[in-house]
Design a protein around this nucleic acid. Structure first.
Lengths: 205, 205
DNA sequence: GTCTATAAATAGATAGAC
DNA sequence: GTCTATCTATTTATAGAC
């Protein structure tokens, strides 16, 4: 049945896809709000408005729910990367990526997972979509990091992998939440502060 | 019964204290290893070698166990701060503090708690020892941050509170773990890299 | 595929004897 | 205070009707 589809089947598939989109959106929000451990499957089902058993027809486990949300997040990130003009210097694109990350985070839409959870970890490692998405993202960022180092814009003494990890870490930087709950700074302020400390460091220049 | 103690009572109290020390040490290790959510009270009791019910005679809840470990960690930090010479420049003391933090972390002895957990959060907020210790530590670091800014060593455009949070965040920086599991860098390398990106930033100088 | 109802397992906390 | 045994609540996951 390759390349054959009736309108009815397509419609059904669209409905299915739409529901899964809603599920993933809810999971994404809950992962951003309370994290993987505090998020319960009952909660997800209730928020989506379907029975828990129905949820398990779409995703075989809680870990797979989280994985689907992470795949979606990676797609959003990759999509944003593609929107950046090739005319910009690599260092500027990297700054823009971090800014975008902080924006998503401040909007409460950045899912974050505990790096210690082993069952979650193995699910992610065996998820091809996730691993491929992560590799694609890392390759692209890695390329820009190399370019920025060659151009003398990024510290050449830092291994590219360390730079990459440091950029990724902005997606779960607790400084953002701390400053936000402090209430003394606007979102724009927070982004500026974190961007400054990330790229320029704490020391005076 | 103030300032009165028999040898017997003192001995009993010493035994009690020793046991609680062992409990706190175990909790500290487990919090560093697997985090608060993954740590179970059964596990703590088994590791200490006592029954779970006995554990609950010492600490009324899992949250209080974690709080006790955090108080201990704050004491260790404060003790380290006190060991730093007043002759050093404030900026150097701050660098040393971060280096010490990374060392403890790399040794697998830095407990870290989820900032989202609300029951844990309220337990910590109502724990006087914890709050006092945190305040004392923050005051001291805050003083050094101010001095370093006045001396022109720290970026004056960053609010001291943002600097403080950024320093605290090194205690739960995932970059450290990522680089460590990568296996390509020694602990000394990792400390150098994280210290560089923290104080000097990713951008070239 | 969606539902209700329930299984199965886990974990925080406690009762009561000693 | 320490123990064994148990309670209670929660949560992941599934059975089975429709």
């Amino acid at each position: 049945m390759i390349a054959v589809s009736t309108g009815k089947i397509s419609f059904k598939e669209q409905m299915l896809q739409a529901r899964e989109d809603a599920i993933i959106h809810t999971v994404n929000r809950l992962l951003a709000e309370k994290g993987f451990d505090a998020m319960t499957v009952d909660e997800v089902a209730a928020a989506v408005g379907i029975a828990k058993a129905s949820l398990y027809k779409h995703f075989p486990s809680k870990e797979d729910l989280a994985a689907a949300a992470m795949v979606r997040a990676l797609e959003r990130a990759t999509s944003y990367l593609a929107s950046l003009s090739d005319d910009q210097a690599a260092i500027d694109k990297l700054r823009e990526v971090v800014r975008w990350t902080l924006q998503v985070k401040l909007a409460g839409e950045m899912p974050s997972l505990p790096s210690q959870n082993s069952s979650l970890r193995s699910t992610l490692l065996s998820n091809r979509q996730y691993m491929d998405g992560l590799m694609a993202l890392s390759d692209r960022l890695g390329g820009w990091i190399g370019q920025a180092q060659e151009a003398g814009h990024l510290n050449r003494h830092l291994p590219p992998i360390a730079v990459l990890y440091t950029l990724y870490a902005r997606a779960c930087d607790p400084v953002v939440e701390f400053l936000k709950v402090g209430g003394q700074h606007s979102d724009e302020d927070i982004m500026r502060l974190v961007l400054t400390s990330c790229f320029d460091g704490l020391s005076a220049r």
